[in-house]
Design a protein around this nucleic acid. Sequence first.
DNA 1: TTGAAAGCGCTACCAG
DNA 2: CTGGTAGCGCTTTCAA
Lengths: 338, 338
Amino acid sequence: MSGRPRIKDIAESLGVSPATVSRALSDSGLVAEPTLSRVREAARAMNYRPNVSARNLRTRKAMAVLMVVRDIGNPFYLDVMKGVEAAARAAGYAVLMGNTENDPGRETEYFDMLRDGHADGMILITGKLPSREDDLYELPENLPVVVALETIPGSHFPHVQIDNEAAAREAVQHLIALGHRRIAHVAGPLPEVMATHRLNGYRNAMGAAGLPIPEGYEQRGDYLLHTGQKLCRALFELPVPPTAIFVANDEMAFGAIHELRRMGHSVPEEISVIGFDDLYLSEAFFPPLTTVSQPRAEIGRQAMMILLSMISGKDGPSGPLVMPTTLKIRGTTAPPPV
Amino acid sequence: MSGRPRIKDIAESLGVSPATVSRALSDSGLVAEPTLSRVREAARAMNYRPNVSARNLRTRKAMAVLMVVRDIGNPFYLDVMKGVEAAARAAGYAVLMGNTENDPGRETEYFDMLRDGHADGMILITGKLPSREDDLYELPENLPVVVALETIPGSHFPHVQIDNEAAAREAVQHLIALGHRRIAHVAGPLPEVMATHRLNGYRNAMGAAGLPIPEGYEQRGDYLLHTGQKLCRALFELPVPPTAIFVANDEMAFGAIHELRRMGHSVPEEISVIGFDDLYLSEAFFPPLTTVSQPRAEIGRQAMMILLSMISGKDGPSGPLVMPTTLKIRGTTAPPPV
DNA sequence: TTGAAAGCGCTACCAG
DNA sequence: CTGGTAGCGCTTTCAA
């Protein structure tokens, strides 16, 4: 008996059929007690492990899901990944890592991995849908795909997300309540959906309070640290600079605060800054960052739960699942200087 | 023709054999030109994708690797993951995510996934080896497993790592060169290998400079933020507190600096702090953190390259691959107060 | 250059 | 409750 044992080896060594061994090992409940124990015992003794390719081929399942993000190097996704991984492993699923780097071609590749049996379902944490040139490529109605955190407009996939617009509005309202009137916004990569929602929240809050948005108070960013720095500088080259900045994500907020410090402005005494995401380390930052917190691990977990139910043939939820956010008021916001 | 097309469907629609289709689709170079194009054309028209389970079963390969970390939620691993992912995808391999949460049982599970054909190889970013109760479980000599960042003592697997001891020594020497004499160390979770190396580097540097290590100057931590805070406080309850702290990782260093600030000590004017890892955001921290930088993405890439060559049957390198580190001198270190 | 056919290792159907 | 057996879809001999 050289090499790894197969089901046949166990069967032969015990004088039973492969079918019985398979049944015994899969807890089918169809094997009588004396046999059951003997098979299990033998399998353990021979250190048997079923070959997954053979099983997958036969059962037409991969027992794996694909988790696709825009940028695997972004800490923003960590907790979501953690939630997805935990829920997947609890259900016996493996998690395959996908990284699009914002390349639509790659997204298509990952959809293909669904079709070729690499995975049974996919969690998309990326805001675009693959567009094939040819119309032949039509996504099946009930494809097990769940979108988390992001929004893919016009798609019928279930979404697990937050209300970005409302959360942004709340953040800006906090600044207004502190007495700020000149509030600027460093936005994400418009016209992406999430960035747009957060921008709209800003505009809503400003409008509702009757506050103007002067020329140049809306800067378009890309969620990256150094862009936060750069746009913050731009803001302070305006004739009348803001007294508070609502930044579309924590990373750019860090950059902005860094730059403010470099320029000799103190946060929050002179300038208030508020971020979005509540990154790992945002609380340890100095000053601790005021920001909007979203339950990322829970979003990942929920997305996985929905995906699992879709894989098992059920329909996904009809509407998006909206998770609650919390405004974490910490050390970077204060009333404007008198 | 309902459902996804198989090789047979293409073959029939073209009046050739499945074998020919398979050969044409795999660039075997054994198919003549007229046929070749027709097959490819048909495959594209029918939107054909080969079933991976069937292929894997036949070829006895999974075209996937497993990347196992201690804690998927730790930003420390991000760049490594990025490097691994990039190299894997370039070679046509998928990456499966593993998360041990420091549970030896889980490590064993991941080793099992190698045996059951889930993956062809594994990158271990975790410092322990699974220990089975029974001796039956012996790891094959040439199992395609590469250890990255961490060290698994006594194992024959190739390692891609840095010289933690030398890097730690360099960090402490920097503090000494600035004029510090009372230097404390907040260590990692001793007696783990990496934590031990960094501790040894600290002791070496202190010893070589003839500096004493007073009672309580070595605190045992666990790499977590709040532990950095706690141990920093402990350090300042000593009769003679240090003027500089070498912290075993950036995360605890953030915690320490946070706590120093809370206690009213200014960094680096009163106290110098130096970290290890050069996390994402360490530079944007205030003050920008002086720390030891290791080429994490490159370590991940190298580990993957070695793994790929082992998967293809070659021997791994005989000795560990040691990557260079850089001491990033930034804003948290300065001469001690006079 | 192509075809026929034999499995890879497993599960699930159909009998008994 | 158990055994025999037919494939899952693909690759890869061996022949032609």
